[in-house]
């Protein structure tokens, strides 16, 4: 009759086991709360990157020489104290590390969360607070990563930079590469869409950071959402202005 009768035992001594201790950071990372710390810290690093990347790129409005010169400047960061490109490479590797950490934490939290509700609700949910941004973090994140790969192949490695054009990719001619790439409307469109999703990702992520890191204080709590949205808006507006500027001809060779 009854489909299954649970075996029942009295509850006792539930808190006498000891948890295996790992080295400090691994120990922290082993729990979901710790992984959120990893998400938040790597998120901050990448937020710093996208902001400076956007600011640097506005040099294109000052002309080819400025932008190309900025690229050269990056290579010479801290030169001659440090060898050429060394600092840039340290930054690149660190950022990749942060990205890897962000992705790993996101992946393992997703697995955890799927496991936490193996049988989904059989009727439609009526969400009250969850926003489009918060609910699309995985999707927006994946699209942004895919975009990043394209973006690197396009403007850093030049592999896809000349598809559909008759130009030649020259690494140091950043300005020309950008204009050539965005002259292709599907590329410009992809760029705009990806950046809008990045903005969505940041609008939730930049707020989440405060929660995940436990930065909570009535004195600034009201500003947390405003900061996240403002930050996202600045990055997105800056970034999508570039393909639009190329498309409408403000920036051209």
């Amino acid at each position: 009759m009854s489909t299954s009768t649970p075996t029942r035992q009295p509850v006792t001594a539930t808190a006498v086991g000891t948890r295996k201790r790992r080295p400090l950071l691994l120990d922290l990372y082993s729990t979901a709360v710790g992984k959120k710390y990893a998400m938040a810290i790597s998120g901050i690093a990448m937020m710093g990157f996208v902001m400076f990347h956007m600011l640097g790129n506005t040099k294109m409005y000052l002309g080819a020489a400025e932008l190309d010169g900025y690229a050269e400047f990056l290579k010479k960061l801290l030169y001659p104290l440090a060898p050429k490109e060394s600092v840039l490479w340290i930054l690149r590797v660190s950022l990749l590390g942060m990205l890897a950490l962000h992705l790993h934490a996101a992946w393992s939290l997703t697995v955890l969360n799927r496991h936490a509700r193996p049988v989904r609700y059989q009727s439609a949910r009526d969400y009250q607070e969850a926003s489009l941004a918060s609910r699309s973090m995985r999707l927006s994140g994946i699209v942004v990563v895919m975009f990043m790969v394209w973006h690197l192949l396009d403007l850093t490695f030049g592999v896809v930079n000349t598809i559909g054009t008759d130009g030649v990719y020259v690494r140091s001619e950043v300005y020309a590469n950008v204009v050539r790439s965005f002259d292709r409307w599907p590329v410009a469109l992809f760029y705009v869409v990806a950046n809008l999703l990045l903005g969505l990702h940041l609008a939730h992520g930049a707020w989440s950071i405060f929660q995940s890191l436990g930065w909570n204080n009535p004195r600034f709590n009201a500003w947390r959402v405003a900061f996240a949205r403002g930050f996202a808006a600045i990055v997105v507006i800056g970034n999508i202005s570039f393909p639009i500027a190329v498309t409408v001809g403000i920036v051209s060779v």
Partner: peptide, 11 residues
């Protein structure tokens, strides 16, 4: 006390 094993709980 349940956690420590002093009490057995039958819920």
């Amino acid at each position: 006390q349940i956690g420590l094993g002093g009490v057995r709980l039958f819920n």
